[in-house]
Design a binder for these strands. Sequence first.
DNA 1: CATGAATGAGCCTTCATTCAT
DNA 2: TATGAATGAAGGCTCATTCAT
Lengths: 219, 219, 219, 219
Amino acid sequence: MTEHTTRLRADARRNREQIITTAREVFLEQGIHAPLEEIARRAGIGIATLYRRFPDRHTLVQQVALANLALVGEELTRATTAHPDAWGALTQLIRRLVELRLSIIMPMLLPGLEEDARGEDETLRAQRDRLYDQMEHLTRAAQQAGQLRQGVNPIDIWLGVIKLSRPLPVIGSDLNDLITERQLHLFLGGLQATTLDTTDPLRRPLTLDEIDHHLRTTD
Amino acid sequence: MTEHTTRLRADARRNREQIITTAREVFLEQGIHAPLEEIARRAGIGIATLYRRFPDRHTLVQQVALANLALVGEELTRATTAHPDAWGALTQLIRRLVELRLSIIMPMLLPGLEEDARGEDETLRAQRDRLYDQMEHLTRAAQQAGQLRQGVNPIDIWLGVIKLSRPLPVIGSDLNDLITERQLHLFLGGLQATTLDTTDPLRRPLTLDEIDHHLRTTD
Amino acid sequence: MTEHTTRLRADARRNREQIITTAREVFLEQGIHAPLEEIARRAGIGIATLYRRFPDRHTLVQQVALANLALVGEELTRATTAHPDAWGALTQLIRRLVELRLSIIMPMLLPGLEEDARGEDETLRAQRDRLYDQMEHLTRAAQQAGQLRQGVNPIDIWLGVIKLSRPLPVIGSDLNDLITERQLHLFLGGLQATTLDTTDPLRRPLTLDEIDHHLRTTD
Amino acid sequence: MTEHTTRLRADARRNREQIITTAREVFLEQGIHAPLEEIARRAGIGIATLYRRFPDRHTLVQQVALANLALVGEELTRATTAHPDAWGALTQLIRRLVELRLSIIMPMLLPGLEEDARGEDETLRAQRDRLYDQMEHLTRAAQQAGQLRQGVNPIDIWLGVIKLSRPLPVIGSDLNDLITERQLHLFLGGLQATTLDTTDPLRRPLTLDEIDHHLRTTD
DNA sequence: CATGAATGAGCCTTCATTCAT
DNA sequence: TATGAATGAAGGCTCATTCAT
């Protein structure tokens, strides 16, 4: 879209996209401090090529986040399409964002780091703000329907999703998934305007024994 | 408490405590992968001394967590002393735990890792379980008083506090504090049995502008 | 020979060879636990370059041994070319192997470690076995000529050479050379079918006085 | 015996002897570069106590060697007592020295290092020389009986035993024992005045297959 | 442009040796 | 005197980044 982008040769653009896709996967698995060489190798390119496209780790992280921002938009569209009611759309969106860990590198914080994103087009902030507006539309509708608690805005939701998504270190991914799921349930409960009965056996809390069991078997 | 501990020479015990205190701070700032040398330097000792006491990073992390476990107990006592009502005590405890980030290294998960803590007191698990019982006492009381939502247990609270406490990387601590405070508010709201009005201007959500401002000035 | 090898860039291959050559020297002087940094420094490269080629010490040792295996083959050819009689060829070969300490890292033991030598030529074992066959040919001929003792095989000779070649620690290389030479003489005498007169003044044993003298002056 | 020695308190002397005994074991297992702290721990004393007795590793090694010298004398007496014929005594002695690896730190080289052995009595050299004389007596007798090859002296035997005793690194102790036994057989064969038939099936050489097998199973 | 090579700096860990109790 | 504590220096290894082909 930008001059910079359109001037890239076809293979170069393919490389660029491949790097970002691979980087997202690796960042998810190992965190944003994963070796860049691992990303290059998995992307099937040389390390120097990666550096040509992304002069340092910070830039790469930002670009991945930027790509995530687009994906969040897609999920939002998908959620509103699937659910006529705002609350239904909102909860699907939140669930999906947590599932995909799309927010792991905090797309909504990006514009503040804009200065580093040299060469990127000016629409970045606009893109985020448009997304914000779409979500705000959704939250207002849900609040008017009496389902989303008053006083909550998209930022609350984004940041909540980010905190939920971040896996706890040391413990295995199985336990992390259990924990995230349960906390997501609590989070959604907290967002709801009317207090639900959470004694639903399918939504029961974790116990110490379960945790110990997971720690033992995963260890 | 253990023979091992009491047999340490006075200066050695002082060092040991200094290391744990410093490690807690450094882990809070940089995560549990912070260079051990940094901890040693800040504690004013040689790196080898640190290794003599804690043969590897894992052991050190555990010991810090173990120390935290004791501090959580103290905060619990303090909270129940200060507040005759269970909900008041519970919310003070949660606020304090988040403030002190006492749970950042997950004390309640410790017993599952017990096997590594050779030579450590057999009372470790008992200590955790006692703490759990105390908190369960508190949560039940709060539920009977109709203030804490049904279906919530101490694990939910501990894990929520842990997720809340973990600072987001890259962004400064000021913004992190704002975010944590707001999410804590939402978390407490979610725990409450009766939905409160969260339009309290003192509890208003963050805005994109605020975030951008912080990112710019902190950067 | 392998694809891997031929695909190396010219400068990289030069480095690789330089490392192996240098490593052989350093291993001879200091044993196979010599600091890898010393090898890198002497080879005129960075430590990381050494690690790029040889991920750990074990790999490097093996590759040095593999290179030695080739050199042993060359010495064998040279010896048989120079001496029409099998015993003459055999003794020259043994002397040369001891002189060059080619066997110090036990080339003939390599195939047993084969599994670690991932990506290495399948011909490694074949190479060793071919060498064994050539030496067996030589030993049989020498035995039929009545000059090599019955019941001795190439393994005996290889292992004898290895034990002879290993310098004794602490004492200087001058004394080590004297000792090795004398023990080589005894070893060859032991291999011979007919007992020779070893009172040859040129082949007289060491004395305590000589040893003391060397220890004093070298120290 | 020396002033130094007699002045030691009873417990101090016990410590000293315990250290030397332990050091011999550890040196045998791990080589003379084994951590001194391991020796202290196994000996049941503090590291500083070890340093008080032996200011550095070199000194300790020497003292262990000196102790070994005495043990060699005992074995010599035992061998001559058990065998009326010189050759029988000599071969038993050699076998025992190899078995016990008594020579692993080269007792006979000690006198040359005398200067470091401050405080030790002047009889050290005399002790070694007496041992030499005893062995020379034995070798002469064996030579006169026509069983030991001419031109061989005790130094040859000591040094041969030392070379035989040193285990090859990396490979396991089982294979090392096999190798040492076989090379000892060859060594003794080389010492003998009359050539024996070495096709005795009990004394057959190792094969490549056996070596490979050991390397695979021990690895 | 794309690549793989090379590099130095950083952290981890061990151990010989000295110091304080 | 005996002890355990403390320490620095050395070596192992990894990884971000630059360079040469």
